[in-house]
Design a protein around this nucleic acid. Structure first.
Lengths: 347, 347
DNA sequence: TTGTAAGCGTTATCAA
DNA sequence: TTGATAACGCTTACAA
């Protein structure tokens, strides 16, 4: 601790005025190269770092962006937010921004937090994960002209604001097409109850791929809340139907994990329990199952799954934000990223 | 947006000086009650909020604390940090602090981040999750007298700094005692390679409980890196020994999840595959398995597990920090929390 | 190209 | 008990 190093310390050391130091930092091109060099050296030798609070008072900008974290209802899907958060923090750091996190009970609580964060900390922007039909939060932010980007499409109006999303339909399309190529004709889908943008999107990819292959999706899908046990129960029901699916695409890894259980048992049924060796060796279950999100658990248990490019999604969120914050005001832009199918044991 | 509301706006509105408003905020007792009342009313009607940057310039305090987030190597254990982070953010908010997150590649990178966060953002304190023998980060922070608390004991010297931890040995002790009470005499343990504080701690609880019950731990434990497949393989090895364990305590849910697979198969071995109905009904496997961390995945699949009070741990971290930050300088304190055994299907 | 002066919103000091 | 003044470290406007 050699005492506080301010812009004045640097100025003295480099034998220039404080203003020149500031110029080197904020407008290097207007400073003569040799002077600039001298100042830069002083900065490194002294280990000077601009004080954000002081800078912020003048500029009104904090170089801080905020993200909400949610309690993990399901540790499996929770890792999605986790990985997104990590990517966001890394990219933000590279762009000179820091990430602040906050919690909120409901939409009103979240909006109250916006007010606090904005007036007390001068936050530069918000990143929202997950959007719903008629989201009051985005409306509030847009109305105050607060820069923000959402990870997840605005399901009402695609051009309502900046967003980055992963094309869920393209993901289930890849999964379904993979199974079609493998010769399956009756491919089932286990998804969430209709009405959620994400869930409906993922279902649509399955459906359209079947139709494009002249296959009939009727009677091959089922809806349930997310969860392993829900997935297992629903898969069991699906497999017990008169003309059961011979393969399953699921809206999440949680559902898929449950479905894998059901599929294994269903195979044992047919094999009268003699196929244990094959199972032990990690061979394919007879009913292939594909999940969604490529969570670490999927990787661990060998579940084939659709992988979201979370790191890239996070990076693009930061890009969009810095475009708005640092560059000239542009029109809201958005980005739909393609997921990839990660083949493992289950399909 | 009715323009910026500063302390001056409030002062005008309440017909007092700026200083009086400041006093109402920071030293209410020296302001006459009626004046205080008038100022308070002005504050609420105007929706005034103190600007942190300005306050920080004077006080040198930012009311910001920082936590590092790590990429989830394993989605199962990742949820532990996740839940801790959530608790931390909530408690910090209640105490008037905000949480900033950062990433770091290694210890040197993390220390470089400390320097940046400290000099640029005037961070008030750090929360470190996980500590190791001879941790350079805690040494650096202690040397600069930067307030910090760790979630995890300093394994070298218990009084080196503030910390909160969960008594891992007490957790495995509960798990082991439960199995002893259930009549088991050969209880195995699957843990991490020796040398990690957390892993050794958890192993010691198993060991001492066995010894206390006049049971011999010899030949009943095995070491492996964390992971589901590692757990399955190791459990299989353990169960294939001459006098195999009849129950298993694991150092993590990941290991336990793998062990459950191995245990199921081992039962099928003995039962010649006829016991499928019992398995489907979720009955106990013949070899009970207990995990550690009570992750959401454990809850989903019915794995009995040791539950860490993460929310409380986080809250206590904030308490310790605010003690140091707001109160008079006290001696470093620490806290060892008791985990609980959550009984489910597997034991 | 460089230096001077002012001000951002707050709190600490000190006088009234 | 209250109020005026200075200062925190920085950047913008303007003068040299």
């Amino acid at each position: 601790m050699a005492g506080k190093v301010t812009i004045a310390t640097v100025a003295r050391h480099a034998r220039v005025s404080r203003q020149t130091v500031s110029n080197v930092l904020n407008a290097p091109h207007i400073v003569r190269p040799e002077t600039r060099q001298r100042v830069l050296e002083a900065i490194t030798t002294l280990g000077y770092r601009a004080n954000q609070a002081a800078r912020q008072m003048r500029t009104g900008r904090s170089r801080l962006i905020a993200v909400r974290i949610e309690p993990t209802r399901d540790g499996i899907n929770g890792s999605v937010l986790d990985r997104f958060l990590h990517g966001l923090t890394e990219t933000a750091e590279a762009a000179g921004y820091r990430v602040m996190i906050y919690t909120a009970g409901d939409d009103d609580g979240e909006i109250a937090t916006y007010e606090d964060l904005l007036s007390a900390y001068d936050l530069d922007a918000f990143v929202l994960t997950g959007t719903k039909h008629g989201d009051p939060r985005t409306a509030w932010l847009a109305h105050r002209a607060v820069p923000f980007v959402t990870f997840g499409r605005p399901w009402d109006d695609p051009d309502a604001h900046c967003w980055v999303d992963v094309d869920g339909a393209a993901g289930t399309e890849q999964a379904t097409a993979h199974l079609v190529r493998a010769g399956h004709r009756r491919i089932g889908f286990i998804g969430w109850p209709r009405g959620s943008g994400v869930g409906d999107d993922r279902r649509s990819g399955w459906r359209r791929t079947l139709l494009a292959s002249d296959l009939d999706p009727a009677g091959l899908d089922a809806e349930t809340d997310d969860g392993i046990t829900q997935g297992e129960r629903t898969a069991r029901e699906l497999l017990a139907r008169p003309a059961p699916p011979t393969a399953l695409v699921c809206a999440s890894d949680s559902l898929a994990l449950g479905a894998v259980q059901a599929a294994r048992d269903s195979r044992v049924d047919r094999d009268s329990g003699v196929d244990r060796a094959a199972r032990d060796s990690g061979a394919h279950p007879h009913v292939p199952v594909i999940g969604f999100d490529d969570t670490p658990v999927a990787a661990a248990v060998g579940l084939t799954s659709v992988s979201q490019p979370l790191g890239e999604a996070a990076a693009r969120c930061v890009d969009l934000l810095t475009d708005v914050l640092d560059g000239p005001q542009r029109t809201p832009r958005n980005l739909l990223l393609r997921p990839d199918l990660v083949l493992r044991h289950t399909a």
